[in-house]
Nucleic acid binder design. Structure first.
Lengths: 138, 138
DNA sequence: TTATGTGCAAAACATTTGCAGGAGT
DNA sequence: ACTCCTGCAAATGTTTTGCACATAA
């Protein structure tokens, strides 16, 4: 008899989740690695990637596939949207109403089986809007 | 006196743009490379990357920062949204109305200077919805 | 003629993976 | 005990870059 495979509660996983819950900055895998390493100096980057991926698959956290070169992770799992600074790459939550109706519209406009959507705004954050050298891409 | 720097019309650029105009598949840089190489066998992948980036900066084409591991490029520059298959990674245009009002909402909800937004739907394409092994991430 | 662009190859990043030993249940 | 997980290091995949030569204007 095979029991269903369960995700073990390892120290590494606990601490990754704890650290992710502490911040609202949508860190990249490498930033999570840096945060976690302060408490678990011997953790490997591979472990961080594996666990972030696993936690995203099981719905404990969100993997943000926003623009830029790296994936980002978010412990806030309620549906919400993001805004990314084109200058410095920072990603913030943006509190506007979730467009519940557009999945329906999308279903009518395509052959796809719609599973969800994400809106990403782009712009300049307060810090970068001031120091005003025309935004670079990314 | 310095004339404004201009983008030279090289054979490579012409052909990259022509090939991109031929398709509606939002190819990755590597796919563009393959397409272009049939006509210009000695072109380098670096040249393709450099030119796609440059053409995106000047607004001739769109660089799509959608989910998945690679950036994609689109010769359709009118604002429009996309849908990505979670199973096979394909990206299609989706013809729903552009939400003109949400940039305004975003401006009120954040400190950012809003420059734009993009909506990415996720789901299963016709091919993948049929062969129904639970979608993998990406 | 000369600044800009190209091909090529190496470098730089981001992410994934194989494996031998370690730890949760 | 018996998997599943981890650290480490190597491999993979994507994009960028340095440089000597070529070419559009």
């Amino acid at each position: 008899m095979q029991e269903p495979t369960l995700m073990r509660l390892t120290t590494q996983r606990q601490i990754i989740l704890e650290e992710l819950l502490k911040v609202s900055s949508h860190p990249t895998a490498n930033e999570v690695y840096d945060m976690v390493r302060k408490r678990l100096p011997r953790i490997g980057l591979g472990t961080v990637y594996r666990n972030l991926e696993l936690m995203a698959e099981t719905g404990m956290i969100l993997k943000l596939e926003v623009g830029g070169t790296q994936k980002r992770f978010d412990a806030t799992i309620q549906p919400h949207y993001h805004i990314r600074c084109l200058e410095c790459g920072k990603v913030d939550d943006i509190d506007i109403a979730v467009q519940q109706d557009i999945n329906e519209a999308a279903a009518q406009a395509s052959q796809y089986q719609i599973l969800g959507h994400h809106i990403e705004f782009t712009g300049l954050c307060v810090d970068c809007a001031g120091s005003d050298q025309t935004a670079s891409i990314n």
